[in-house]
Simulated assay, not measured.
Amino acid sequence: MPKMLFALIALLLFASPVPAATVGDDGLHKQDWFAITFRDIAEDIEAAREEGKRLALVFEQRGCIYCRKMHEEILSDPEVREFIEAHFKVVQYNMFGDEEVTDLDGDVLTEKTAARKWGYVFTPTIVFLPEEAAEGASVAEAAVATMPGAFGKWTFLNMFRWVSEKGYETEEHFQKYHARIIEELRREGRLDAE
């Protein structure tokens, strides 16, 4: 018994903790792996592509309990975080912010006017952009998928996987993809509460 107790204590002491999200001056939760850019969407798409990744924009707001939950419960999960970090360049937007944004169609906006123009009203909202910038289209028109609101781990992760696998170009709608993956997880005994 003492050996088992010692092993448990050692595991707790030396386990590498997942870094917690911090809260910035703007009141938004921050991940150290979120990209800081000049918010020129076409440039960000190209930079992501050069890194072998896709661009995802995440709209949040100060005091959003669902954003906090996303950061503390979903993005802190190593499986979720590692997949997103490996496949996506994520840029955070403040739904009511004043930072300058250049849309794909060339319009120069603030974060808040961009959110209104693109029709994003929920936080968090994650917008997935194509691999190459669509000239003349706005972000909302060019987006290959949008995830409005907060979801559990598997819905959240499966949406990133579906976009990464270009499911939007296939006949398998996201809901069908998600149901198939959930069934596979059940068979493997890996499904936790969703």
Rank of each mutant, 00 (worst) to 15 (best):
F96M: 08
F128Y: 14
R81L: 00
E194R: 03
K30M: 09
C67K: 00
A133Y: 01
A47W: 05
Q92N: 12
G136N: 04
A193K: 11
E171Y: 03
K89M: 15
P148I: 01
I45A: 10
A145Q: 08
Y177A: 11
F88D: 04
G189C: 02
F160P: 02
A142R: 04
R116V: 12
P17I: 10
F34E: 10
L8N: 03
V101S: 04
G136A: 05
G152L: 12
A20K: 15
E194F: 05
A10L: 13
L129V: 09
G189K: 04
V163I: 06
V139L: 14
L185Y: 07
R180Q: 15
F151K: 00
R62D: 13
L8K: 08
R116F: 08
A115W: 00
D26I: 08
R54H: 13
H87P: 09
M147G: 01
Y66D: 11
E169N: 07
F14V: 03
L8E: 03
F174L: 10
Y168F: 12
S138L: 03
V108G: 06
L191V: 01
L104F: 06
S138N: 12
T102I: 11
I182D: 07
C64D: 09
I36T: 15
T22V: 09
L8Q: 14
Q175D: 15
Q175F: 12
P2E: 13
Y168A: 05
V90Q: 06
L185H: 01
Q61D: 06
E51D: 13
K30W: 09
H178N: 10
N158I: 04
A142Y: 00
L12W: 06
L55Y: 04
H173M: 11
R116E: 11
T113K: 00
K166A: 14
F96V: 05
E172L: 05
Q92F: 01
V80L: 06
R180E: 13
E73W: 01
L5S: 12
I36L: 14
E72L: 08
V127Q: 05
G189M: 02
T113W: 00
I74W: 00
I74R: 03
L104N: 04
W162G: 00
F6S: 08
G189S: 02
D32T: 10
W162C: 03
D192C: 08
E73K: 07
P19T: 09
A133W: 02
R39A: 03
E194G: 01
E111C: 11
F156T: 15
L75F: 03
F160N: 04
E132M: 11
W33K: 07
F96I: 08
P2H: 12
P19M: 06
D26S: 08
G52S: 01
M159G: 00
E46S: 15
E43L: 14
R161I: 00
D107Y: 12
K112N: 10
D32V: 02
G136Q: 02
E51G: 11
I9C: 05
Q92Y: 09
V121N: 08
E183A: 15
L11S: 10
T113I: 00
T102Y: 04
I65T: 14
A10G: 09
P2R: 12
F38W: 12
T22E: 12
I74M: 12
C67Q: 01
I41F: 09
A193F: 07
L13E: 01
R39D: 10
V58Y: 00
V139W: 01
A20R: 12
